Amino acid sequence: MLYHSRILVGTTVGLMLLGGCSGKNDKTGSNATTAAVTPAKITPRTPKPGLWAMTVTAAGMPNPMTMRTCMAATAPGSTSFTPPPQPGQTCAKSSVVPTATGYTIDTECSANGMTMAIQGTVSGDFSTSFRTDLVTRMTGANMPAAAATGTKSSVDAKYLGACPADMKPGESRQG
């Protein structure tokens, strides 16, 4: 179970961070990102650039994990919640849709005989705080059946201020 918790934590934090580091969406090949039509009333929001404290909790984790992450400014037309595809990964769907309170996330990617589907929401003011609630389902030959039922996780993020001089955008540290 500890191994699966680590995968989940990595996935949760990865969704939060990798998209912010990339500054763009990959819209080519089988890793196409679903472009959502944004109603005129909804202006997509992204986390304020700077240092964020992110506390990750998930089923199967004995204690919450806190990380400090230096977030970069998000490139126009992208979100901080769209991770770039990883080498060898094929994504059947990768959708991040703006809502009145944040975003909905719906992804399904496969690699190395394992498929991971993630659904959830991101909400907050994105200047002082935001929260991500996800359900992750994993299937594959080496995955226990319980992984397919879904594991809930959340990230509570609080803005701390400017990034310290010794941290680069996209860098995270535990604690």
Rank of each mutant, 00 (worst) to 15 (best):
T121E: 11
C109Q: 12
S78P: 06
G19Q: 01
D166L: 00
T151D: 13
A165R: 02
L18F: 13
T115D: 00
T151K: 10
T128R: 07
T99S: 14
M65K: 07
F130C: 03
P85H: 00
S154V: 14
G102H: 08
L17P: 05
M61V: 03
S80W: 06
T55L: 00
M143I: 05
P169H: 00
I105G: 05
A36S: 15
A165D: 13
M114W: 11
D106R: 12
T99P: 15
Y103G: 09
G120P: 06
L134D: 04
H4V: 00
T34Q: 10
A72I: 09
P49T: 06
V56T: 14
G170N: 03
C163Y: 04
P76E: 09
G113P: 15
P87L: 07
S154E: 15
A59K: 06
V97E: 02
A165T: 12
P144T: 01
C163G: 05
E108C: 02
Q119H: 15
T28N: 10
C70N: 12
P47Q: 11
M16F: 13
L2P: 09
A32V: 14
G175C: 03
A53F: 10
P144L: 01
T12I: 05
M67F: 10
L18C: 15
N142A: 09
D26P: 03
A111S: 10
R173K: 15
S129G: 11
D106L: 08
M138T: 14
G120I: 09
T79L: 10
